[in-house]
Design a protein around this nucleic acid. Structure first.
Lengths: 342, 342
DNA sequence: CGGGGTGATGTTTACGTTAACATCGCGGTG
DNA sequence: CACCGCGATGTTAACGTAAACATCACCCCG
């Protein structure tokens, strides 16, 4: 039944199906695309012939004819961060739901050349639109090579004036975390920030500074990390040495994990002596020692909105240029508490 | 310079470039594909014309003509696990290096229907080969619909008799961990395993049981988790209640994290009273409290080998059917120590 | 000085699909 | 009963590219 020896080499085409079913290839096409104007008996014949020959449509030919690929490109630096992989997963799922496939373009080196190269490759790829998941200020150069006719949506950037941007409300999340710590009675809040090139990092740091300034608190020197737990650990060791430091807001959960470890090693009890808050709410955060107070990001929603915005552009429906902000929520757990009485 | 008003609607094609450059479109094609038989002056003219018009090749037409898409499909259940996202990243990077793009096909529900659906979609997609990253026993049904002419490589499965399989040497890694614990003097080792459908989980558990049996040790009842830290925590609470339990091997780092938390909450000191080992060596593992002894997996190598094996198949070069095992290494850290003296 | 090559470029055609138009047959209506 | 209209199906052409073959100019060598 599934046998059907096709001629060697060549794949089964509509013409083959048409021959076997005794119809024209246009009728096969109509069946294949679900066109209504085909009588049931004919449709059945065609479907049987398709099954017998193991026909599957050639998407290259289809794309050539239709002028669209039904594929979205995702350009990013790495899948290694929780945020990126979760966002990509959401994008892929939602795109699949809309009948689109996802092509992944990793950019190995976050240099302008790297980005340019990726965009060139994307230009040659079979892609109707591009989602850029980028944390660094590298869109300017890349912008020039953006292939015309390809739509773009950006995650985590400040390109809102040029492209639609979808992002977590970084600033509000950071504000919630810092206010939470101040609300517990801490005099001020130390901050472990991410890499300098990162927009997210910058926005979280700005919001932290702003809340402290608004409250008239002292703004301690900022500690810089690179998102990794290891870098958080190093920052944590420095902070642990400062007895006046009673509250730390880390720009992501992994650096917060490093801070927790540093505090533990230096014998500074969390949360009794020092409070620690993170950002992201990665699945493990609730299992840290102690379970981490953090800001929850809805990566799935970010992915969904990206796809939505991009498809709207592709379909030439009205799109609000500018930034869509996905709200964040503070998740209080056991790593924050009032400062020690003195 | 970059202006160049093309006719409305239609994209720039080779014919347009040819017209502007005053050559035939075949010459444009030759320049585009890097064919050597083009004189420098002509090549320059063509390149200038391309730049002026903003020409980019139509990959659909190219794929149709060449009969290959230069794209690999990756089918998986989720990107949420460290192993999967790291593997996918390595696949994407290595594939890009070989001039191939990656199309991501998430299968929402790990049912037979889900897998079948994904393969059907993949069949219609522009893909020269497929990498299946699957943890469950669902290939049998899917097998039937595997589009002919599409090559397949499988990660983390026992399908080695049917497809080439690339995987981490799960069994050896687990053996190293268990032997390490026994070597420290523990009478036996408890095990927190992953979900029942997972091959990795099964192999790690089997190796654990085998080492204990070979050493003539008692085999404690197995604790089942679902890879999450939360499930590890629940298992850890049960183990913490058993004073005879001095060594725990968790099937991944996240569950180990949960075990660490449970032990801490129950006041059982790690590693003085209880040793805990994990599997994966995720980047955070070195920052757990205490830093986790675990088995390092080389996801990058797995991804690389996958792409290599798949491309060999696609190019009809000889491939060893069967399983390629990527070695693992035990990383001793601070979560394991000799059992308490009694 | 002519024949035979060689290398650059042009022409033709086919890849598989689908839009647009053409055809055909049948039932209803004035 | 002739004509119209409509629904089902067939025919033609085009999407953009690249392989195969054709052509042409030029150079080398006998």
């Amino acid at each position: 039944m599934t046998a059907a020896a096709s001629r060697p080499g060549r794949r089964v085409s509509m013409a083959d199906v048409a021959r076997l079913a005794g119809v024209s290839s246009q009728t096969v096409s109509r069946v294949s695309t679900g066109h209504p104007a085909v009588v049931d008996s004919t449709r059945r014949q065609v479907l049987d012939a398709m099954a017998e020959l193991g026909y599957r449509p050639n998407s290259a030919a289809r794309a050539l004819k239709r002028g669209e690929f039904r594929t979205l490109g995702v350009i990013l630096f790495t899948l290694a961060t929780t945020g990126n992989s979760r966002t990509v997963e959401a994008i892929a799922t939602h795109a699949a739901h809309e009948g689109y496939a996802i092509t992944l373009i990793p950019v190995a080196v976050p240099t302008q050349d790297g980005v340019l190269g990726a965009f060139t490759r994307l230009g040659e790829l079979a892609v109707d639109g591009i989602i850029v998941i980028m944390e660094v200020h590298l869109l300017d150069a890349a912008n020039l090579t953006l292939p015309p006719g390809v739509q773009v949506v950006v995650v985590d950037s400040d390109a809102g004036d040029r492209y639609p941007v979808v992002d977590t409300d970084q600033a509000d999340g950071a504000r919630q975390a810092v206010r939470h710590l101040l609300g517990l009675g801490h005099r001020t809040v130390w901050h472990v920030t991410g890499p300098a090139e990162s927009f997210s990092s910058e926005r979280r740091a700005n919001a932290w500074r702003e809340v402290l300034a608004d409250a008239g608190r002292e703004i301690p020197p900022i500690e810089r990390g690179d998102w990794s737990a290891e870098s958080g650990y190093r920052a944590g060791l420095r902070l642990a040495g400062d007895p006046s430091c009673t509250a730390v807001f880390a720009a992501n959960d992994q650096m917060a994990l490093g801070v927790l470890r540093a505090m533990a090693e230096r014998g500074r009890k969390v949360p009794d002596e020092v409070s620690v808050a993170g950002f992201d709410d990665i699945p493990d955060a609730g299992s840290y020692l102690p379970p981490l107070t953090t800001v929850h990001q809805d990566f799935a929603e970010v992915g969904r909105r990206c796809v939505e915005a991009l498809l709207r552009q592709i379909r030439h429906e009205p799109v609000d240029a500018g930034t869509v902000l996905v709200p964040t929520t503070l998740i209080p757990r056991a790593s924050t508490a009032p400062p020690p009485a003195r």
